[in-house]
Amino acid sequence: MSPLEVLWFFLVFVLIGGYFVLDGFDLGIGVLFPFIAKSEEDQAVLRRAIGPIWDGNEVWLITAGGALFAAFPDAYATTFSGYYLPIMLVLFGLIVRAVSFEFHAGDPAWRKVWDVCFFVGSLLPALLLGVAAGITFEGIPMDAHGNYIGVPLFGLITPFSLLCGLTGLSMMMAAGANWIALKAPKPSALQARCAKLGMPLQIVALVLFVAATACVFLYIHPTMDPALNALRWIFAALVVGGLVVSMFFSKVNDNDLFAFVSHSVASFSMVALGACSMFPNLVVASSDSVGPNITLMSAGASDLTLFCMTVILCIGLPLVLVYHVIIYRTFRGRLTQEDLTEGAY
């Protein structure tokens, strides 16, 4: 177990966490879209609230995928080929979603089609990425080379992985409601609706999270290294704390920014909790598996590759953070009437 392998194990999860926090809220908005937009104007607010940023948010997924490929090729190969159909459904979702923004703007006659694409394209990844995480926690049957040998698609989906999927989905939907509460013009009916919607969604997320975590702690990965176990408890507490604080800020203080931020802390902690529960495994082998667990030692790329990747990340990540500061600062604050009428759309 080289230090670089350990570093990249956690870096991959940091990238996944970045994705869950950032793309999480705009996927959540896509899922909420048909339910909270009561008028054309509401729809315009929802689209404009994520218009300039969703694409950058999605790049976190591509970066995480690329980093997994580069740092742990065997884990990338096993998961992506093993979860073939669910991954393809995620892809088809992301594909139709990506075009739905621009095509909606440019094609009034087909607007309904692109609205449906926006919704379905958000729902599929929002649900299935959590399911994929759950499958990886629980373990899959592999042959000696790490190839999945179970039943495709429905053999993968278990009650636990579905629970993880729903947890992720509800977290994203709550984040989406929080983001709209933060960005929509105030006072407006849409803003009030979203501010109100945050709390019930977060309660659902909390309940699902506690159930999923109980499964992990009691039944899936019960025994752990004490230090990691302590970290697990800390992150679990941060998830619960983040969600409770977020509800407090939105209900009592009426502070939408802090509500959104503490929800994001909860989301990120959830991924960190996953990382601690998995360490040092990347893909767990189920009891009926022929091959062993895929770990950061067995799947790790050579130290030279990991070193090059570290250099690339040390240059790239600060730039990425600067870009994010630029874009979020440029489009800071609540949307105004001018925002909704100007721009390319």
Binding site: G66, A67, F69, L313
Partner: peptide, 13 residues
């Protein structure tokens, strides 16, 4: 994997 993944990650970053 030891070679091909790095440029993909770099492309994203």
């Amino acid at each position: 994997g030891d070679i091909f993944g790095a440029p993909l990650a770099a492309e994203a970053l």
